[in-house]
Design a protein around this nucleic acid. Structure first.
Lengths: 210, 210
DNA sequence: GTCTATATTGTGATAGAC
DNA sequence: GTCTATCACAATATAGAC
């Protein structure tokens, strides 16, 4: 009745994402997923053999989506400042539609490390290629020999942490939802500026060299 | 037999921390805590009435310890660069002895937001005081009107994210435990330098102004 | 205070009718 | 493919002896 525009399997996966993203593996209940999908528990096991299998499907989609976009952005031929801006925009957009995904990924890695190995291999991330690319670009744009790993980690930290820590920071500062949304919006321009300023500062400095 | 240097209540709390920190509320088992403490489940309920109560005690200790130190450091009268260095050193030290605590805090806030309210109030964080203090200090040391909230969030991001994301990054780069430990050690000097350079860069810039 | 035994409920998974 | 009914076991919590 609630529409068969999607197949049952698609409805299940969608419901499973909603529940697993918010509660993680241990906190999620098969019953809740079934309710969310408008079916019963038995049917979950008919399509996906076990909770474990269903969770893996959900994790795979989330992980590949996140790393896929990050890979595309960082390996593109935009200037560094533009890359950072795009990367930030992506994570902030994700927050606005589903703020639980970054936490979900981390959570899965902490609580179910074994489950992840195969999926990591499939992502084809090739970190050495990324590092070489960034190092070359930093040298070209800023004439600096800054360690690309630390620089990459700084970008990730400044982009992702404010998204993950949202509920903590909102509570500490007593910020309503809209106020925090606005802060993240500001960061789309503030963070690239912050990093670009730091890179300029290295021109006369010799730290962070490999 | 295993020593009564600690009271039973202390042994229970210590065991509960070990288990809850690593597995969160949903993943932890009262049986495992009892085993870890060398007693049986019934005694857990004798001292702490429920799993919920025991978890609250564990969360309270972790939260107050983390925010307490951060408060002390940020409100001290050290120069900014020194504050950041100390803050980093603290989080990296925590990682070396118990890397799960930052994740545990976030996890608790995501999965059990209701439990936290009372504890937040007890922490007496006083964010406006902190922001005013930082704003004044930044102006004095760097002659800059940079938004102190974004600056504070940048420091937290650069310090805490690499600790929380450790298992993810280790997997992506295939880094052994020791290599990551070394990277974090490097960041104790790299991050303060990075931020100081960015602050210098703002002297001729006008972004990030409130 | 500490234990063993048990109550009670929750939850993943399966059997089997339709 | 989808449902109802049920199994099997795990997990929190309590009763009651010592």
């Amino acid at each position: 009745m609630t529409s068969s525009l999607q197949s049952t399997e698609e409805r299940i996966l969608k419901a499973a994402k909603k529940v697993f993203h918010r509660k993680g593996f241990e906190g999620a209940r098969m019953q809740e997923i079934a309710d969310e999908a408008g079916i019963n528990k038995a049917l979950l096991h008919y399509y996906f053999r076990s909770k474990e299998n269903l969770f893996e499907a959900v994790f795979r989609d989330a992980f590949l989506e996140l790393t896929g976009y990050a890979k595309t952005v960082f390996l593109s031929d935009n200037p560094i400042k533009e890359k950072i801006h795009k990367f930030l925009g992506y994570y902030i957009a994700i927050l606005n539609e589903n703020s639980y995904i970054p936490w979900f990924i981390l959570n899965a890695i902490y609580t179910r490390p074994g489950t992840m190995k195969a999926i990591f291999d499939n992502a084809e991330l090739n970190p050495p290629e990324l590092m070489a690319h960034l190092q070359h670009q930093i040298k070209t744009e800023y004439g600096s020999e800054i360690n690309p790993f630390h620089m990459w980690l700084n970008v990730l930290s400044l982009s992702i942490f404010p998204v993950i820590a949202k509920p903590l920071i909102r509570e500490i500062f007593q910020l309503p939802e809209d106020a925090y949304k606005q802060i993240l919006e500001q960061r789309k321009t503030e963070v690239p500026q912050f990093i670009a300023n730091a890179l300029k500062g290295y021109e006369q400095s010799d730290s962070m060299i490999e």
